[in-house]
Design a protein around this nucleic acid. Sequence first.
RNA 1: UCCUCGGUAGCUCAAUUCGGCAGAGCGGGCGGCUGUUAACCGCUAGGUUCCAGGUUCGAGUCCUGGCCGAGGAGCCA
Length: 447
Amino acid sequence: MAPVIRVDQIDRYESQQVRIHGWVYNRTHKGKLVFLLVRDGHGFVQCVAFKNDLDADLFDQITRLPQETSVIVTGEVRRDPRAPGVPGGYELGVTDLVILQPAAEDYPLALKEHGVDFVMEHRHLWLRMPSQWAILRVRAALIAAMREWLDNNGYINMDTPILTPAACEGTTTLFETPYFDEGVAYLTQSGQLYNEANIFAFSKVYSFGPTFRAEKSKTRRHLTEFWMVEPEIAFCDLEQLMEIEEQFVSHIVKRVLERCPAELASLGRDTSQLAKVAPPFPRISYDQAVEMLKEIRDQTQDLEQKELLSLEWGSDFGSPHETELTSKFDKPVFIYGYPTQVKAFYMEPWPGRPEVCKSVDLLAPEGYGEVIGGSERISNPDLLLKRLHEHDLPQEAFQWYIDLRRFGSVPHAGFGMGIERTVSWICGIKHIRETIPFPRTINRVYP
RNA sequence: UCCUCGGUAGCUCAAUUCGGCAGAGCGGGCGGCUGUUAACCGCUAGGUUCCAGGUUCGAGUCCUGGCCGAGGAGCCA
């Protein structure tokens, strides 16, 4: 019996009889000839059935196979540049076909454009479409590349808790859940504080998991549940942190370009920009960025844009600022040394300039904005305690965190990278809701 | 929370500045076609025009209120 193959490896089987386990994605009926586009999860391949080659009854069934019917197709692999598919260029001359289940006729997703609400309502089926399939395979490749780099560079994976007793950073809104006699617990918005404990045992660690923000954000860059990788490094300052970040990001982009060429091509992604992603990345201080934005603002004629770009020293950048800044570069850009007042309480002050802290954000090019936020952390217990009080945070809840600075404190730093934003940049897609299998947004928890 | 836009067939949309018979393409069904790339051609079925009021001889269209969604701002990764 012919072997079952994976469509992404079809080039290994030219002129051989093979079987494919899959689903009918599309059908074109031309009388005595039927084209089936079959997907097997690994790729999409065209299968060609001629009336003369097949039993009359079977051929008749093939001419009316509904979209999404599950099938086992047997046939000979042949190279043909006309053949569509992913990776494409090969097709199957059908010699036999078994129908496992004919799909119901009311499959909702036509091979046409659909509205956002409609495809989101049918996310469980939308996943089968080529664009979604490609994006989520890139996501998986990206996660694998990320773990590969960390595991190969001395980082150890430490899982941090999802149920937490209090706000990690005390600012943003948290999801709350009842918790036995303790009253309430909160869904985590970062594993960082726990990782700061972990580095004193393991030196270099990373956590990777879901994080939750109950912000009422309603933009293409926000989800209420998203995934973040958070490396944390002992004996590391801000400068070293930026070197780590650029190595890390460059490795991920390079690996995805190597491993997902067919997926990126099927998304129509121009990869020439991604190919330029290699160290070093430009480093711009917050002060310089403010100056650059002033110039850009003075030069623009568009009054609305002028308004959006208005900025005082001391405030954080909004999305319009990030877009303008990154458009000046063809690589990701570091912006470091943000004002202390717009950043979290645990960031190390800049030497001699307490109004600035040793923080760094990495902004992706092509308008994708912030994908990484990181900083050197405060290592002095007295200063940390002072900052806690300035931010009105309860000392008791953070006692363990202060303890870390009492028993062999060292300079240390870390960052968090948003997986969905990074995938959306690499894939070149507009909205991050497509970069996670089942997105959670402010007004959607179904399916 | 604020600003802007939208809701008509299963889907994507149209329905004449200024109220006058509810339409098309895709998808479904039936038929035709040996190289299709969102195939094409013919026939066919398919409607609570988001909801509730109001104006009018007459409302998909105008008015009031509500619901739902999208894009953006703020917040953030």
